[in-house]
Write a protein that binds this DNA or RNA. Structure first.
Lengths: 224, 224
DNA sequence: GGGTGTTACGTGTTTTAAGCAACTAACTTA
DNA sequence: TAAGTTAGTTGCTTAAAACACGTAACACCC
């Protein structure tokens, strides 16, 4: 007896640019939900791992290569797909958006970044998936020094600060935040400055990769 | 085209009794891994939800009814099952072990509680699943007032304390722990005492369900 | 029935971190 | 050159975690 349940993967990919958190969506080329926006994803091939499937689909549909990926949650309500029973394993990814040129193909008519505060209507139960992903992102950021996967190589401290306030949706104390991050020793202060608009030019920082990944592995608790 | 990937669910169920954290395992009745211990679980039927599948399999194989269940992680390596491609959605459950009489049936020859420090060899990749579950349990306990789902209705404070030290695998400061828990206001102190062996008899406590579930919903952060 | 061991429980002090205000620094723009 | 703007520092106040000790209420033993 062959099962009639199909298995798919979906990927919620976040990017951050100049104070905005965006998510990568595709416009569906075929029915169901033809012409509507959706999270990139597709069916798992019989002999590929789940992670391979996510990366393959992401690359096919949007041209992107991910640099951070983790499993999010598995969605399996019997009626979530009009084509029949489809259980989807959702993943959660982070990229530097300006490191890639979006390029839609296969099932996707178009691929585009959307600000998470200005989302279009989504196909299937993708709204629920996205909300789950946003919660995960907000949760992660408070106990892991995320940011490396979202920020540029070199960045002013205010970018990190803005990433946190935007993501948490609330103000944080600039002074304590700086103290805490500096004390983590994950940042190397550079001798370069950058000036954007008015105001004092900011010093540039860079993540110390070695220390950063060491900290992540130790499962650091750092409570913003 | 019908897919050849099959979908199963597995459930890691924890119980706590007198200072011991146990996990519920079954002895497999059929090949593969016949006669070996495994996490309870089985294939998902075409028209049932994932949660229904878990609860059905758990009840069939062990006689247990769960009072706390959440999704853990989905395991999908192509070679994890010798019968072919099987992707398994693992769940995580908590029960009061002495509230049920174990009763093995269907695929299970026997169902039994095992101390998590004295586990037998496990089938498939179930060792990895169990380790993931233990990590989740340790993580959850530090930011959620878990315990209600594991402890008896009435319990001395030392039971809660022991639950935490056992689960975290390290000592905690008894004085601060008590202060913190009491300040959460989730416990009602009863006028009953219990004496086990020597020493001063302990006052019994009870979870204030209303306040407890309110706190959980608010997603309390309470950092042991 | 009075010491002794044992577990339960409370008070207090010291140390660390979070919360918050005021200030200095280095630029741009009018 | 004064005013506006963003960057970054110093320090004080308050809350919480880390830690030691003292007291309470039993069982057990002689």
């Amino acid at each position: 007896m062959k099962p009639s349940i199909k298995l798919s993967v979906d990927a919620v990919v976040f990017g951050y640019e100049e104070g905005n958190i965006s998510v990568l969506l595709i416009k569906r080329k075929y029915a169901p939900f033809k012409g509507q926006w959706a999270i990139p994803g597709g069916f798992v091939l019989d002999d590929e791992s789940l992670e391979d499937a996510v990366e393959r689909e992401l690359h096919e549909e949007t041209g992107i290569k991910i640099n951070y990926l983790e499993q999010l949650y598995t969605f399996g309500k019997p009626d979530r797909d009009p084509r029949g029973r489809v259980v989807s394993i959702a993943y959660f990814g982070l990229v530097h958006p300006n490191a890639f040129k979006l390029f839609a193909a296969t099932d996707a008519e178009q691929a585009q970044w959307f600000n998470i505060n200005a989302l279009p209507e989504l196909s299937f139960d993708h709204k629920e998936i996205l909300q789950t992903a946003i919660k995960r992102l907000q949760g992660k950021i408070t106990y892991e020094p995320i940011g490396f996967e979202l920020l540029d190589d070199k960045f002013p401290f205010s970018d990190l600060e803005k990433l946190y306030t935007t993501l948490l949706g609330r103000g944080i104390d600039r002074r304590n935040f700086r103290k805490k991050i500096i004390n983590l020793n994950v940042l190397d202060e550079l001798d370069e400055k950058v000036s954007k608009g008015s105001g004092r030019p900011a010093n540039l920082f860079q993540f110390n990769q070695k220390r950063y990944f060491q900290l992540k592995q130790e499962g650091i608790i750092f409570e913003i």
